[in-house]
Simulated assay, not measured.
Amino acid sequence: MGGRWGDEEPPAEAHSRVSDPERFRPLLAATDDLVADLRRRFDVEVSDEPLDAGHGLPAQRLHPATGDGADLVVVRTDFPGVHLRAGRWTDASFPRCGCDACDEQVDELIEELVAFAGDVTGGRFGEQLTAGPGPRELTTWRPGAINTAYLTPAEAGAHGEPGRHAWGPWPQRSAASST
């Protein structure tokens, strides 16, 4: 990633400072474009709903009309930023942090956002929650990215039943219905 710090460590205070959150505002426009594109290309049902009663942030759920594709929930945050939820357990935030030390670049974040959505819609996305007596593992994968989080039994229980999901591709919208 390109950024202002180069090979040097950012100063300690940069980790707790967000001097220009508005630099992330283009993520919101890119997300609007992405959702419009997904609605045009894929046969999906779209519903507006709050993510949950605690947050009350406006969200759009895109649900494949047929097949075994993963749902994609898009939340535009006040930061400004975007939060995606895919499948049963996967969350991704753009930006991930936003602090001056992380110095995330908005063009790179937009590319990551589009790639994440492309992996979900293309059926190149999976997730697994393990069961057992000790810490549980929540693993998600897509091309070039495997992430594992270790959860306490209580945290894992809040996610519901363990299982494995290798999600399928979203159904394409026919040319006649996309006009």
Rank of each mutant, 00 (worst) to 15 (best):
I146F: 00
I146E: 15
I146D: 06
I146S: 10
I146Q: 13
N147C: 10
N147F: 13
N147W: 12
N147S: 15
T148M: 04
T148D: 00
A149S: 15
A149C: 04
A149V: 14
A149D: 12
A149W: 09
Y150D: 09
Y150W: 15
Y150V: 12
Y150K: 14
Y150F: 15
Y150C: 07
L151S: 05
L151R: 07
L151E: 05
L151P: 07
L151V: 08
L151Q: 02
T152W: 06
T152C: 01
P153S: 10
A154R: 11
A154V: 15
A154G: 04
E155Q: 15
E155S: 10
E155G: 03
E155I: 08
E155N: 05
A156G: 09
A156I: 01
A156K: 02
A156N: 06
G157L: 05
G157D: 03
A158F: 12
A158E: 13
A158V: 10
H159G: 02
H159V: 03
G160S: 04
G160E: 08
G160W: 05
G160D: 05
G160F: 08
E161I: 02
E161M: 05
E161C: 03
E161Y: 08
E161N: 00
E161V: 11
P162S: 06
P162T: 06
P162E: 00
G163L: 03
G163W: 01
G163D: 07
R164I: 02
R164D: 06
H165L: 00
A166D: 15
A166V: 13
W167F: 00
W167C: 07
G168F: 02
G168E: 00
G168V: 05
P169G: 03
P169R: 04
P169C: 00
P169H: 01
W170E: 05
W170P: 04
P171L: 01
P171I: 09
P171H: 05
P171C: 06
P171A: 07
Q172S: 12
Q172R: 13
Q172T: 05
Q172D: 14
R173P: 03
S174Y: 06
S174L: 09
S174N: 04
A175Q: 11
A175M: 11
A175Y: 04
A176Y: 03
A176I: 13
A176E: 15
S177F: 10
S177E: 13
S177Y: 08
S178D: 14
S178T: 11
T179A: 14
T179G: 15
T179L: 13
T179P: 03
